[in-house]
């Protein structure tokens, strides 16, 4: 369970990224976070695994106060939270399976990762994760030879290898074409339902957000302006979130 209690975030330059955020996200929810660029979507998601610090209020994940963690306890905490990025963040010069295997690096002695020594067991686990996202046949191909959608699936497999309880996805489909974006969102949905992993997605495609997520959070200028099931995200709600510029299909209003 992720719990924000009156959380605020002020950047060193004085910009308020988050204002009085109160949220409770139960294990196994599929949450889409929508809002304009710069509204605080990334900030919100990145505070959960402490890639960003919060400056006021209290943020707990499974009753652990995130701001109390540091060093080793923080790294152990991050092991159970997966993260997916807009630009995939793979090691492009190396093979797909090696990318997935990096998920085991934090628990390994350094010389094994330095010389790329992985056990048979680890390799089988990595291959299983690739199978779950349907790209087992690409396991020994160099990551930079894959298409964008395939690369995002490698990133998803890498996250699954970590065996996370939560997956944070920061605009995972923004760099993908509409067809591939739908497929990747489908992958997220399947993982969410089959493995009961909580999923939080930042997304600009409103149609995809409403289609796949069970809960939608709208954020504007650092404040939560909507929080409810996708079916309740009416045109009025979208008008509030986007200052009245888009409709439910993601089209621009003139």
């Amino acid at each position: 369970m992720i719990k924000f209690e009156n959380v605020g975030k002020v950047y060193p330059n004085g910009f308020e990224g988050l204002k009085h955020v109160n949220l409770t996200i139960e294990q196994g929810e599929f949450v889409a976070i929508i809002g304009l660029s710069g509204a605080g979507k990334s900030t919100l998601i990145r505070t959960i695994n402490r890639m960003h610090d919060v400056t006021s209020g209290k943020l707990t994940v499974d009753d652990v106060d995130v701001m109390s963690l540091s060093g080793k306890t923080l790294r152990r905490f991050r092991r159970k939270i997966g993260m997916i990025f807009q630009s995939f963040n793979l090691i492009t010069r190396t093979t797909v399976i090696k990318n997935v295997l990096t998920a085991f690096v934090p628990d390994m002695p350094w010389y094994r990762s330095a010389f790329g020594i992985y056990t048979r067991d680890e390799k089988i686990k990595a291959l299983e994760c690739l199978d779950k996202v349907g790209i087992l046949d690409k396991a020994f191909v160099r990551a930079d030879q894959l298409s964008g959608g395939q690369q995002q699936r490698v990133a998803l497999a890498r996250t699954l290898a970590q065996n996370p309880q939560i997956i944070l996805a920061d605009e995972p489909v923004a760099a993908l074409d509409p067809v591939t974006a739908n497929q990747v969102m489908g992958d997220f949905k399947r993982i969410n339902e089959d493995m009961n992993i909580s999923i939080l997605i930042n997304i600009h495609h409103i149609d995809l957000a409403l289609k796949y997520a069970t809960r939608v959070i709208g954020i504007r200028e650092g404040e939560i302006v909507f929080d409810g099931p996708a079916s309740e995200a009416t045109q009025d709600v979208l008008d509030t979130i986007y200052n009245g510029k888009v409709d439910r299909d993601g089209n621009i209003q003139e």
């Binding site: 790294r75 092991r79 939270i81 990025f85 963040n89 793979l90 934090p106």
Partner: peptide
């Protein structure tokens, strides 16, 4: 990017570098 991903997975800076 990959360095950031490693850190988000709980790797140390040295592990992420390697």
């Amino acid at each position: 990017g990959a360095f950031e991903a490693m850190q988000a997975m709980g790797a140390t800076r040295a592990q992420a570098f390697i």
